[in-house]
């Protein structure tokens, strides 16, 4: 088995250049590659195009990269939790491509699966469809959306092995599996790294073929955006 293990986030992201296109897994702050984001913030890599469902919050996640003006363009579906993002967007400092969430997920999936475009009904008749090809299938209108591929995909998993196989936990899976497949170089950070052979092959979510580098992450904060509890 090919050993894909690197020491840490700093080593894993060392060759990410300015102006790279990145995918970052996560939904809200759930399942985001915390270690890789910290390493990019420290490295001050700039001019980045970031494909991520959300843009973090002001002081965590991709929000940290926005604070340092490292991001040139975001491709996202929902960015409501981040005031600095909204400010940069309204002032024109940041370029943003807002994409329906299912379309975003499918564009990334298509990128990993080698499908350059597909038709979806989401956004037909809205400004999302502007400039895009539309077509009727069985009496319903659809619009064409293109795949997304990234120079580097940064994903976070619960467990991974030295061969790059990944297992996710809870709703932290979200965009991570599709992004793992759609990165030319995919970097996986995991809470628990085990030797190849320890994970049950029946229970692996992302096959290692999609992962080029893997490392044991540290110090996960796993910040919660909306802590809601019941008393009983």
């Amino acid at each position: 088995m090919i050993n894909k293990v690197v020491d840490n986030a700093e080593v894993a992201v060392a060759d990410i250049p300015n102006n790279a296109t990145l995918m970052l897994g996560g939904f809200g702050l759930c399942g985001i590659p915390e270690n890789c984001i910290s390493a990019l913030v420290a490295k001050k890599t700039a001019g980045l195009t970031c494909i991520s469902n959300n843009a973090g919050v002001d002081d965590f996640g991709i929000g940290l990269m926005l604070q340092q003006r490292q991001v040139k363009k975001m491709i996202s579906s929902y960015v409501g939790e981040n005031k600095e993002f909204e400010r940069q967007l309204l002032s024109g400092e940041l370029e943003v491509e807002l994409t329906p969430q299912g379309t975003l997920a499918e564009r990334i999936r298509a990128g990993g699966a080698g499908i350059p475009a597909f038709f979806t009904p989401a956004g037909y008749g809205t400004e999302v469809a502007e400039g895009k090809e539309t077509r009727e299938f069985d009496g319903k209108m659809y619009l064409m959306e293109n795949w997304l591929i990234a120079d580097f995909a940064l994903v976070k998993a619960w467990k991974g092995d030295t061969a790059g196989n990944l297992v996710f936990k809870g709703t932290a899976r979200n965009f991570n599996p599709m992004m793992a497949a759609a990165g030319k170089i995919t970097i996986a950070e995991v809470e628990e790294l085990v030797p190849a052979g320890e994970l049950d092959p029946n229970a692996i979510h992302t096959p290692g073929v999609f992962v080029q580098r893997i490392f044991q992450g540290t110090g996960y904060e796993k910040r919660i955006e909306q802590r809601t509890v019941s008393s009983n």
Binding site: S76, S77, Y78, V79, G80, E86, L89, L90, V96, L98, P100, Q101, G102, T103, T120, P121, A122, G123, Y124, T126, V128
Partner: peptide
Amino acid sequence: VKGMGGAMDLVAS
């Protein structure tokens, strides 16, 4: 400008 999230996919289908 918060974005559409999943709403466009949901209402279209």
